[in-house]
Design a binder for these strands. Structure first.
Length: 651
RNA sequence: GCUGACGUAGCUCAACUGGUAGAGCAGCUGAUUUGUAAUCAGCAGGUUAAGGGUUCGAGUCCCUUCGUCAGCUCCA
């Protein structure tokens, strides 16, 4: 009888009849015992539900198992509740904030009088294991607003949350054993499902991310379905630690930050500077072939320039304060260090009359700019105050925007995709709250970028409110060798500054027209990109970037002259090589070369000296060695260098 | 900027409840002349981040400043 049944559709399109009141768990059981065992949650008409909720008639249901990413989020969300359960037992007066799943785990925010110590975390984790062993079911209840307020009368943060819920929202409450939380859900069936987790660290976090509100104490943890996954994740954290560019930067003598000079200011040591030089040279070649022109502009300017550009009202917090002019100049004259190059390049554009025939005009400058980043945000080379941008500003007609975006995406593909072998994705970042210009120009600019992306056939995501203050942008996000996401390249469209500077070009109609501007960077900044490269390659750079490409190792002093001759042949081919003439054993020199991640070591013993060969040791390849005539060795390396190969030519 | 933790030799780390700063690696010197991831010995190296305070006595306790780290926020 139909009234006693509900009908649900499965993902394969088939239909299943269940008794009224059947839950997701019942459905899984009806499909098969294996699925019932593996089931974590149900996706009901696209929404993830607890397995214990009753299925309405006519819905489409998919049973989520450990293989579904959404199931992992459910597990982590439940883990956050287990964390809160444990914290409430150990700290009964802790007020509870939010506890969502995140990228690789979960967190929960608590308001407590004193921050959690590492010892607290150990105790909390132990208590969590007790909660798991107790295997409390997660019980969902729907309550009305008055009831919700009554239940959370002692939790001001939750009360605030309840106030913010819309009038028609269903208020649900989940209970696991002793712990009750206001929560949308869903959850796993019981706390016993959570087995493989670990608390990672605690840190302060503002309530609702607002720095004017009180600071809560956030505990981060990670949780996985299997022990292997958990261990793999913890290994990944270890791996990330080993790749830390601050550590490798010191070990490989690439860069330093000097307390005497100030935070966020990078000293590029000779080896790091060589990398920067190679990166610069590469990108300059690429853009010069594509119609760009190099310019150099001052680091300082009268601050009126930034008033005119619109920086001062909206960007002053990120700029260093003004400095007075020298003696003899007017009292009121103040200078600023530049945080961006755009106004400078605009002045070059405006320095002469421009014709529609000249456009696009592409002005590029790899220049230092300085931004007064908040001290707490600074981080090695990845977030600095002195930035070397591979910057360019393109002045063009509106009808040229699309073509130019295509060219820029081509450059991104050439540099990030082809040369560095990175996979990346595109974000379209739209107008932020603090912005210049009218909604009409923003509409126009956002539409232009979106059109270009669509016509290109590119896939992209929308980053709502992520744009620059003067215009929307396409941000390029790429992944490194261990799966982390980075941002560098950016393409920004700007209708605003041409307006503010009254830029013009003479059109075909012999009348003045306003050009559009594109701001773009491919590496982003050389600091961040270099920091990324260090972590991505774990310091083992491809040959073309490696500061030291070949180390020639004489086995004893007797082979030093032969080794020097080899070094000269290598250097003559444009490769960076040096001879390790130190009075040490071969083993020592090899260990030193490996720890410094030199791509090739060329061992010269008496046999090689006599035969005109080298015994080549490839970085990381262990004892395996290839004996080659010097000329052949040099030829193979030259090829590897020219092609900017990512894998060694000799293996 | 905010919250918390931290700051000892170039690097990694020691130094009991306050009692004269110590080791390994790196560096220098010498011996050794080495065949694929550390040869041996000796020497040198520090106003314990800076400044102030408490104390007979401070690396250790207190205050201020600077910096670093984990986050929040922000972002190339």
């Amino acid at each position: 009888m139909a009234a006693a049944e509900v009908r649900v559709t499965l993902p394969d399109g088939s239909e299943k009849r269940l008794p009224v009141g059947a839950t997701g768990a019942d459905l899984a059981q009806a499909i098969g015992p294996g699925l019932a065992k593996a089931a974590v949650a149900a996706r009901v008409d696209g929404q993830v539900w607890d397995l214990t909720r009753r299925l309405p008639d006519g819905v489409t249901v998919a049973i989520l198992t450990e293989r579904d990413r959404q199931a992992l989020d459910v597990l982590r969300h439940s883990s956050a509740h287990v964390l809160a359960t444990a914290v409430r037992q150990l700290f009964p007066h802790a007020k509870i904030g939010f506890g969502p799943p995140i990228e690789d785990g979960f967190y929960y925010d608590f308001e407590v009088p004193t921050p959690f110590t590492p010892e607290d975390l150990e105790r909390i984790e132990a208590k969590m294991h007790e909660v798991v062993r107790a295997d409390y079911p997660f019980v969902r209840e729907e309550v009305d607003r008055a009831e919700a307020k009554r239940r959370f009368a002692d939790d001001p943060l939750k009360l605030e949350r309840i106030e913010d819920l819309g009038p028609n929202e269903v208020i649900s409450v989940y209970t696991d054993g002793p712990f009750v939380d206001l929560c949308r859900g869903p959850h796993v069936a019981s706390t016993g499902k959570i087995k493989h987790f670990k608390l990672l660290h605690a840190a302060g976090a503002y309530w609702r991310g607002d720095e004017r509100r009180q600071m809560l104490q956030r505990i981060y943890g990670t949780a996985w379905f299997t022990k292997d996954d958990l261990e793999a994740y913890l290994r990944r954290l270890e791996e990330a630690k080993k790749r830390d560019h601050r550590l490798l930067g010191r070990q490989l003598d690439l860069f330093s930050i000097q307390e005497d000079v100030g935070p966020g200011l990078i000293f590029w040591h000779p080896k790091g500077a060589m990398m920067q030089f190679q990166l610069r040279r590469f990108i300059e070649d690429v853009i010069l072939e594509r119609g760009y022109q190099l310019v150099y502009t001052p680091n300082l300017t009268r601050e009126e320039l930034f008033l005119r550009s619109g920086h001062l009202p909206l960007y002053a917090a990120n700029q260093f304060p003004p400095m007075a002019a020298g003696e003899g100049e007017g009292e009121g004259v103040h200078y600023r260090v530049k945080p961006m190059n755009c106004p400078m390049h605009i002045l070059i554009y405006a320095a002469q009359q421009r014709s529609y025939r000249d456009l696009p005009i592409r002005l590029a400058e790899i220049a230092n700019v300085y931004r007064n980043e908040r001290s707490g945000t600074l981080h090695g080379m990845l977030r600095v105050r002195g930035l070397t941008m591979d910057d360019a500003h393109i002045f063009l007609r509106e009808d040229q925007i699309e073509q130019e975006i295509f060219q820029l995406l081509d450059i991104v593909e050439l540099v990030l995709g082809k040369t560095f072998g990175l996979s990346y994705r595109l974000d379209l970042a739209t107008r932020p709250e603090k912005k210049l210009g009218t909604d009409a120009t923003w509409d126009q600019a956002e539409r232009a970028l979106e059109q270009a992306l669509k016509h290109r056939g590119a896939t992209y995501r929308i980053d709502q409110g992520g744009g620059a203050f003067y215009g929307p942008k396409i941000d390029v996000k790429f992944n490194d060798a261990i799966g982390r996401e980075w941002q560098g390249a950016t393409i920004q469209l700007d209708f605003e500054q041409p307006e503010r500077f009254q830029l013009e070009y003479a059109g075909e109609d012999n009348r003045p027209h306003r050009p559009v501007m594109i701001h773009r960077a491919i590496y982003g900044t050389l600091e961040r990109f270099c920091g990324f490269l260090i972590e991505h390659f774990a310091g083992a750079f491809p040959l073309w970037l490696a500061p030291e490409q070949v180390r020639v190792l004489p086995i004893s002093d007797a082979q030093i002259p032969a080794a020097r001759a080899v070094q000269q042949q290598i250097a003559a081919a444009g490769l960076r090589a040096h001879v390790d003439e130190r009075n040490e054993t071969l083993n020592y020199k090899i260990r030193d070369g490996e720890t410094h991640k030199v791509p090739y070591m060329a061992v010269v013993g008496q046999r090689e000296a006599d035969a005109g060969t080298v015994a080549v040791r490839v970085r990381g390849a262990g004892q395996k060695q290839v004996v080659l005539p010097v000329a052949q060795f040099v030829a193979r390396l030259s090829e590897e260098l020219q092609t900017r190969a990512l894998v060694p030519a000799i293996r």
